[in-house]
Design a protein around this nucleic acid. Structure first.
Lengths: 104, 104
DNA sequence: TCGAAAGTACGATGGCTGTCAAACTTTGAT
DNA sequence: ATCAAAGTTTGACAGCCATCGTACTTTCGA
């Protein structure tokens, strides 16, 4: 497991159905910059956060690499768009609107 | 619960992450015609099928109505497109390609 | 060198959900 | 009138998954 080459719809949806993971992807999408795991301010414990990042990585949606003790996260935007054209954009847009109305 | 008016991203994703339910939606999308529950040839029992149709209805993705003993299903395409622009099209396209390569 | 910071690993656990069988209802055809 | 067909309802169950705490590793700074 960890086959980052093949992004499948099923695994992408399983990853993106979770609100925490979706917030990670949305944030990466918005900033267009690699971000440390710790910079996400997630409403879960560190171990749970690690779990979420792993699921995203195994779904092929992000890449990860270390900088010191910090683990950086990259959204694999081009690969996602190639495997699932239009899906990420639509999903992010919907998520942004949902989040905007939920958390003022 | 059954609030078909409000289509939310979260509930839509929860509904569409299941392959059986996604196949239902894809079929409705392809045929552009209302279809009986029984016409879907799903790989699950009747009671499970009922469950899946209910989840789709409660997520606001389909409408249902009776014709005799047959229960007809309508894809709420316009409403979905309004609530989640572009999402359904991208998802269906990806699902069709995935299904095409999976089931020859 | 020592300690704090950043994550990871590992169980354990609770809740959700997809699944089924069986019994039931309703409708239409014979 | 009867019977089959189409779904629903209910209850039960198994598996998965998000979650946590704790212990651990590694790295950097003081």
């Amino acid at each position: 497991m960890d086959d980052v080459r093949t992004i499948t719809l099923q695994r992408a949806l399983e990853a993106l159905v979770d609100p925490v993971r979706r917030s990670i992807v949305t944030r990466l999408y918005e900033t267009s910059v690699d971000l440390r795991c710790g910079s996400f301010d997630l409403p879960v414990s560190k171990s749970t956060a690690t779990h979420h990042f792993r699921v995203l990585r195994e779904a092929g949606l992000i890449d990860q690499y270390y900088v010191g003790t910090a683990r950086m996260n990259t959204l694999r935007r081009a690969e996602i768009d190639q495997a699932l054209p239009g899906l990420l954009d639509a999903l992010i847009a919907a998520d942004q609107r949902a989040t905007a109305t939920t958390a003022p």
